[in-house]
Amino acid sequence: MIRTEGLTKRYRKMEALHDLSIAVPEGSVYALVGPNGAGKSTAIQTVMNILRPSAGRAEVMGVDSRALGAEELARIGYVAESQKLPGWMTVGYFLAYCKGFYPAWNDAEAAELVRGYGLPLERPMQALSRGMRVKAALVAALAYRPRLIVLDEPFSGLDVLVREELIESILDRTPEATVLVCSHDLGEIESFATHVAYLNEGRLEFAEEMATLTERFREVEVTLDREAEMPRELPAHWMNAECAGVVARFTDARYDAAASAAEIARRFGAVRGVEARRMSFRAIFLAMARAARRAQ
């Protein structure tokens, strides 16, 4: 559905996005995550032809992103946290205005979403709360059953109830629709993403299916025979390694029960016990962020 190859965006000397290559499979919910300033929004805006790439290319629904036109945009729903909506329009007029651009607009669907979200049709957009504005934008992005839904930090700052409500209505449209979402809210990503790509300082650290990601990361705790220092040379996929007394802890980014046990034995010799715990996506993200900071 979306493919980028070496996508790069520079602002004068500053490189906001460096050589990004990802593929978003059809029907997936693909999450771009990373800390603030990682280049997530830049990546999405470049894919959506809001920004022009400095190098590389992106393809959306088989069309070069720079050639994205009305036909393609009529099948894409886009909502962004920072989007400037026409505040003077009432919600009703906003939806009626948007309807004019979409041949596939479904009035019944729009009405249902409006009802579900509890949107006041007669109220001007500028008088709505942020959550209500996002809901209105979402109705205008979903009422024509888009094939691709692109969400740029749409839920940040919303309360849990609203967030769950919105996520639910988006998930209702999958797998017919593909979703590309960028967020730094790891909890919400974990709850519905099928794929994840991690960006840091404009660079892609990894991109893979959520299931394999949580499968390969483990928080490993090794209980040693006696007090010892952490060996100097450690495998690159052991992150944030630290030793306190007889306990050594690290995050293994390529956990495999047999291979990891052998590696631990090679590094530490005889050990009293090894415990490998599954990690939440949030824990994985934090471990990676901490490792990146240490590397700096």
Partner: peptide, 18 residues
Amino acid sequence: LEEPLVGTRHFWLTRPYR
């Protein structure tokens, strides 16, 4: 300026305008 051409945050940019 109802549909400004400078800036990246305007809602119309991702709507199917010709």
